[in-house]
Simulated assay, not measured.
Amino acid sequence: MHKLRHLGRLTAAALLVTFTVAACGGAAESTRDTGSGNTDVATGGRLFATADEETAKLGSEAEPGRFPRVVTHALGETEIAAKPQRVVVLDGGELDDVLSLGLTPVGLASPEGAAEQPSYLADRLAGVADVGTINNLDLEAIGALRPDLIVGSKLRADKMYPQLSAIAPTVFSIRPGFPWKENFLLVADALGEEEKAESVLNAYQTRADEVRDSIQGDPSISLVRFMSGKIRLYGNLSFIGVILQDVGLRRPPVQDIEELAAEVSPETITEADGDRIFYSSYGRETDEAAVVGGPLWSSLTAVQQGRAVAVSDETWFLALGPTGAMLVLDDLERLLARQ
């Protein structure tokens, strides 16, 4: 019953998202399944839902694992002659994607302002070359690696696409964030790992169902992220928002929106209340300490009941791939377990 409820909610959300992201640009029609699924995995069906129909249209119509193939992506079509072996990734989501498919990239870009790659993936990155930062790519370093595929997103590296595609076949998603499952499928398509990707996402949804079954009642989940100069309450069009929908967890009305986030201030932080509050900080200069130590935060019901918990920003908000999503599910099960 829980599965039917959250799948139905996601199907409705997908229809709303279609209109929200239409301005991002369309793509060629394909036979790719873009809807929710609850068919038997043994028959090759999908157990998972997708959140963005425009991104779900991207990919190729090639038979699984067969090359050459032409991949339709955010900036056109790219021909990939043979199964890629030397991949350069330009963002954290693509890094998670490639590693989740069992391939170690030869090069990767670092997040802006970060000295290190995501700690939850660090043990799998020995020997991977640095190719600059997301917003300041080192084209010479990328070329020296002789990649046979570069993966990234239009939102991050739109202007660099001509130079990158001159180095190697380049495949871009429309944007990172809430279409994380569709982006994973796109990367898998470029790598010829479509069947493995669907297996990974089926396992993810099975785990999400297990987490929902471990939770007593129907708590509303508030997500608060402290950033430099702003405080965000995350909505449905976010990585973590999609995960909560997949589990079937309810959101407070102010956050149950088809947007990335709503913003509040330290003076309006009471809008962040919910049965459970999960919060984090991105960057060093945020208002977290002042707000969490203040009287308005202390007045929130969840805080008074000891149900406001700090979580990892790195996995809950920045992971953007299936390996990170599974870690979030582990956190949710631990933090919301039957009491």
Results as ranks from 00 to 15, higher is better:
Thr34Ile: 11
Thr34Gly: 15
Gly35Thr: 09
Gly35Ser: 14
Gly37Lys: 08
Gly37Asp: 04
Asn38Val: 11
Thr39Cys: 15
Thr39His: 13
Asp40Met: 10
Ala42Asn: 12
Thr43Arg: 12
Thr43Gln: 12
Gly44Asp: 09
Gly45Tyr: 12
Phe48Thr: 01
Ala49Pro: 01
Ala51Pro: 00
Ala51Arg: 12
Asp52Ser: 13
Glu53Lys: 14
Glu53Ile: 11
Thr55Ser: 15
Thr55Ile: 05
Lys57Val: 04
Leu58Ile: 06
Leu58Met: 15
Gly59Cys: 08
Gly59Lys: 07
Ser60Pro: 10
Glu61Arg: 05
Gly65Trp: 04
Gly65Val: 10
Arg69Gly: 03
Val70Gly: 08
Val71Asp: 01
His73Gln: 08
Leu75Met: 14
Leu75His: 06
Gly76Trp: 01
Gly76Glu: 04
Glu77Asp: 13
Glu79Trp: 06
Ala82Trp: 07
Lys83Arg: 15
Lys83Tyr: 00
Pro84Ala: 06
Pro84Thr: 02
Pro84Arg: 06
Val87Phe: 03
Val87Tyr: 03
Val87Ser: 01
Val89Ala: 01
Val89Ile: 04
Leu90Met: 03
Leu90Val: 02
Leu90Tyr: 01
Leu90Ile: 02
Gly92Cys: 07
Gly92His: 09
Gly93His: 02
Gly93Lys: 01
Gly93Ile: 02
Gly93Asp: 01
Glu94Ser: 06
Asp96Tyr: 11
Asp97Tyr: 02
Val98Arg: 01
Val98Phe: 05
Leu99Trp: 12
Ser100Cys: 08
Ser100Lys: 04
Leu101Ser: 04
Leu103Gln: 13
Thr104Lys: 15
Pro105Lys: 03
Pro105Thr: 02
Gly107Gln: 09
Gly107Lys: 11
Leu108Trp: 01
Ser110Asp: 10
Ser110Thr: 12
Ser110Arg: 15
Ser110Lys: 15
